[in-house]
């Protein structure tokens, strides 16, 4: 790596970004902190309550359940999408007419507004008018995502796999394309097996993009809101009420500013911790691989 020139004037180039993001990130965050220690009865009249909201929230089952659901959802999503994405990327054609066809059709779900993704699956899964629901019903499988929590979870997970696996595929594919042909030829001469090619050539090259994929997929699934909101509205019961859905219910539905703000802060701190861990791991791996390469 080339040492970068030290230049404090670079701050002037960063200034516009800094100002815009500061206004839209720091002011709301300060407001959330302010709300989290007060109670309000409307009319902008606030009363100091100290840490009560945090204490209530941390002791409440509603928060524990939403948090657990969120963690398990993200874990399931990662466990399915990452291996699946790698497998599809490995099987994708490297040249010819298949490449643009694959890329364009795979990128398509990523460009669909999230609520339309919800609508698509809401329709697709319905027993009366949806292909999936109808087919399952015809096969004699009892499937109704508005009544049965298990079916609701499966629907949302399949929906998310449908929606986001392409991101993992495209990232891995970009990593694979950057491997020079010479590597494969060398492996062929050495008589390397399929598995050792994957283990020693393809996986190391994909490491960086895979980390980005894990980071993006984890974070986005951790704040999922729109799709489950459209498909199930958090139901049946509370079985698909993830953190964001719960938070929006509290903040905008019930206008409970205090508890919602306290929950926002804890949510935000968890995200901050996780993204810091990912970021540290990512930059360390980046340094190691660039040192090892030179």
């Amino acid at each position: 790596m080339i040492a970068k020139q030290v230049n404090q004037k670079a701050w002037f180039m960063v200034l516009p970004v800094f100002l815009v993001v500061a206004v839209s990130a720091i002011i709301p965050l300060m407001t959330v902190v302010n709300y989290s220690v007060q109670d309000t009865f409307g009319n902008n009249q606030f009363f100091w309550v100290g840490m009560d909201w945090f204490r209530d929230l941390l002791a409440s089952d509603r928060f524990h359940d939403a948090f657990l659901r969120q963690i398990s959802f993200s874990a399931i999503i990662l466990a399915i999408e990452i291996p699946l994405g790698i497998a599809i990327a490995l099987a994708m054609p490297k040249k010819g007419w298949g490449v643009p066809v694959c890329l364009i059709s795979m990128a398509l779900p990523l460009l669909i507004p999230w609520n339309v993704v919800g609508t698509i699956w809401q329709i697709f899964g319905r027993v009366d008018i949806g292909l999936l629901g109808h087919t399952l019903a015809a096969m004699g499988i009892d499937y109704n995502y508005t009544q049965d929590p298990v079916a609701a979870w499966i629907t949302i997970i399949i929906m998310d796999v449908w929606h986001w696996t392409s991101l993992v595929v495209l990232l891995c594919y970009a990593g694979l394309c950057s491997i020079p042909d010479a590597y494969y030829q060398a492996a062929k001469i050495d008589g390397a097996s399929r598995i050792s090619v994957f283990r020693y050539i393809q996986l190391p090259k994909m490491q960086r993009v895979l980390l980005i994929a894990v980071l993006l997929r984890f974070m986005d699934s951790f704040m999922i809101y729109t799709e489950p909101f459209v498909i199930t509205g958090g139901g049946p019961g509370n079985s698909t009420t993830f953190m964001s859905i719960d938070l929006v219910k509290m903040a905008i539905g019930q206008f409970d500013l205090g508890p919602a703000a306290a929950m926002s802060l804890i949510y935000f701190l968890v995200i901050l911790l996780l993204s810091w861990v990912f970021f540290t791991v990512m930059s360390n791996i980046g340094e190691e691989s660039s040192n090892g390469g030179s």
């Binding site: 407001t31 704040m223 903040a251 810091w276």
Partner: peptide
């Protein structure tokens, strides 16, 4: 900057509305 990409919009929805 990156943490803002990772932050859930749900956290910001209400303060944005007020702002």
């Amino acid at each position: 900057l990156l943490t803002n990409r990772m932050a859930p919009p749900a956290v910001f929805a209400l303060p944005f509305f007020q702002l």
